[in-house]
């Protein structure tokens, strides 16, 4: 099944499918609404537990507001639900630590994740937040694959990694934001050291 044919329905863009199967409605933080089948939701431990706890009937789904997912935008959520619909009914991998993880990215997933890096990192975050084990596996594998054949300098560019100096500066800025006096004390200490003083106090 191609990405385009995945049965996730973005309410703004397509008609609501008329099926007797149980569907749930979800809303992203930018107010995009999605209908997702009960079976697809089972790929997400978080959402599955949520809908189980709610005990919704089909009428509830239609009559009550869509379930809000405050932390994820519509673009990302669409990818998430497309993935869940495509993989619905598949067994969820259990990590017992006994076998080294070898992750293959299926063709559908590869096409789904043919996106810019920003959206890919959002997808990882969403997969973790919604506890979708296999989506997290393949999206992390995609990020891991981005490192192949790169030099350390290229890796810095691909992952937007800070240098040690930038890391230090960020830490100092964070410390200063917490305690502006700390930096002044440090500078005063350094100045006294330069002047040959042994004791600060």
């Amino acid at each position: 099944m191609s990405v385009e044919n995945a049965p996730v329905v973005d309410v703004d863009e397509a008609a609501i499918p008329v099926e007797k199967k149980m569907y749930y409605r979800f809303e992203s933080n930018d107010k995009k609404e999605f209908r997702v089948s009960e079976l697809a939701i089972q790929q997400s431990e978080t959402l599955n537990r949520l809908v189980e706890a709610m005990g919704y009937t089909s009428e509830d789904v239609e009559n009550k507001p869509a379930i809000a997912i405050e932390n994820i935008d519509g673009k990302t959520l669409k990818l998430v639900f497309q993935w869940c619909e495509h993989h619905k009914g598949e067994a969820i991998p259990v990590d017992d630590g006994s076998v080294p993880k070898i992750v293959e990215i299926p063709e559908f997933d590869a096409k789904l994740m043919d996106i810019d890096n920003g959206l890919l990192f959002k997808l990882i975050w969403a997969a973790d937040y919604l506890n979708i084990v296999q989506l997290l596996n393949v999206s992390c594998k995609k990020v891991a694959n981005m490192a192949q054949g790169k030099t350390p300098a290229q890796l810095r560019r691909v992952y937007l990694l800070p240098s040690d100096e930038e890391d230090e500066a960020a830490k100092r800025a964070a410390q200063e934001a917490q305690d502006p006096r700390a930096r002044e004390v440090e500078e005063e200490f350094e100045e006294r050291k330069r002047q040959g003083g042994n004791s600060f106090f």
């Binding site: 992750v103 891991a144 490192a147 030099t151 992952y159 937007l160």
Partner: peptide, 28 residues
């Protein structure tokens, strides 16, 4: 939202790293 590597939590970074080959880990 995480929009780049630096915004990922340590746990998620490790999930990516454990899927890297030895050579990529050595370079990272």
């Amino acid at each position: 939202y995480s929009t780049n590597w630096n915004n990922l939590s340590g746990k998620l970074k490790l999930q990516c790293i454990e899927k890297m080959e030895l050579k990529e880990r050595l370079l990272l």
